[in-house]
């Protein structure tokens, strides 16, 4: 595949050309954190972040999305009949997504696009979005992508992989869509062997800096019911306050709610992020609740990521090691430690 080198001062021109044909989303500094936002000026791109505070899942799976609209007007022949709200979902390029967050999209694809049903919004946004990823030189202390089958320069879910070198960027096409972006880049030159060697060295250094914290194999071998009954869930759940921060930030948490909202005589049916941390998530109309206790909800989150997903799809786990939940959990529940307990395979980092 095509590999080019673009000097730093010429990057804005290349990105400007992309902006002519597509909407570009990139990390933008807001307060003391970064967040993926629409960027319209190529010179405003800032690649100095480690990662965004919120994951980019909102670009494909918005926190609130109006799916259908309807009228409730008396006498309107269409009253009470839902109609899909048309959406212009043009081509988008996400610049600077980290390899872990891109991998999360791939892991969630199997939920939304199946043989039987297809989520039209997820599927269309995924198809219209080109992912230009930025390899991680300096993983955070909470990163553990190599423990969950990925890595700081994992190009597996990207269209283009960028490597930040002192003089410029190495841009490597991974897919046909990525190749198309690089083919139209007179700012660049074919990457020299020196550039490629330099980039490989950086990638290796980054990978070495990341500790392998647990083994994944034991997840497949252990029986689901045995893991479910483990005594350690009591300890894992003890401090949890069910705030839902972990599920909100997690790039692979996709659960959602469906609600109707009415303003006067017009209504919409919305899809909204939801969280397995909340008791209402599973409350029956009868009052019965299969996950009434905090322990059941905490266990559900970890079992889903590291066991149910793995067993159901023969892939995974449904964790990419981005470390957001570790960084922002208000009571310091550490998913790395829980995974180590579940796999009984190794060192606990804390």
């Amino acid at each position: 595949m095509l590999k080019i080198f673009v000097p730093k001062d010429k990057m804005p021109r290349w990105i400007g050309r992309i902006m002519d044909g597509a909407r570009v989303f990139a990390p933008v500094k807001e307060g003391d954190g970064y967040r993926f936002r629409l960027v319209t000026r190529p010179d405003k791109l800032d690649f100095s972040y480690q990662n965004t505070r919120l994951s980019p899942k909102e670009l494909v799976h918005p926190p609130a999305e109006a799916m259908f609209s309807y009228s409730l007007k008396k006498g309107d022949p269409k009253a009470g009949i839902l109609e899909e709200i048309p959406k212009a979902l043009g081509t988008r390029v996400v610049m600077g997504i980290r390899p872990c967050d891109a991998k999360a999209f791939q892991l969630v694809d199997v939920n939304f696009v199946t043989d039987q049903y297809m989520d039209p919004w997820w599927q269309r946004r995924r198809q219209n979005t080109v992912l230009v990823g930025l390899g991680c030189h300096e993983p955070c202390s909470t990163c553990f992508c190599t423990s969950v089958g990925s890595g700081p320069f994992d190009a597996g879910a990207l269209d283009v992989l960028m490597t930040d070198l002192p003089e410029g960027y190495l841009l490597e096409a991974v897919t046909e869509a990525g190749r198309a972006l690089l083919a139209d880049a007179p700012e660049g030159a074919p990457a020299s062997d020196t550039v490629l060697t330099e980039a490989r060295f950086l990638a290796q250094q980054a990978e070495k800096a990341l500790p392998r914290l647990f083994m994944l194999d034991p997840l497949r071998e252990k029986a689901m019911t045995a893991l479910f009954q483990e005594a350690f869930w009591e300890e894992v759940q003890f401090a949890c306050i069910n705030c839902g921060t972990c599920t909100f930030l997690c790039p692979t948490c996709w659960c959602f709610d469906i609600q109707d909202e009415v303003h006067q005589q017009e209504g919409v049916r919305l899809r909204l992020w939801d969280s397995c941390m909340f008791p209402l998530f599973t409350l029956h109309g009868s009052g019965h609740n299969p996950r009434n206790q905090k322990l059941q909800r905490v266990r559900q989150r970890f079992m889903h990521k590291f066991k149910y997903y793995v067993d159901k799809y023969g892939n995974g786990p449904a964790c990419v090691g981005c470390g957001r939940c570790v960084q922002y959990c208000p009571v310091n529940i550490d998913i790395r430690r829980v995974a180590a307990m579940m796999t009984a395979s190794c060192v606990c980092p804390t």
Binding site: T114, Q116, W254, C255, F281, T282, D311
Partner: peptide
């Protein structure tokens, strides 16, 4: 029976294990 929203295996709430 379970609390359900999507009914098509996507919204995530009605699982029993896998």
């Amino acid at each position: 029976e379970m609390r359900m929203k999507c009914g098509i295996g996507m919204c995530g709430r009605c699982n029993i294990g896998t």
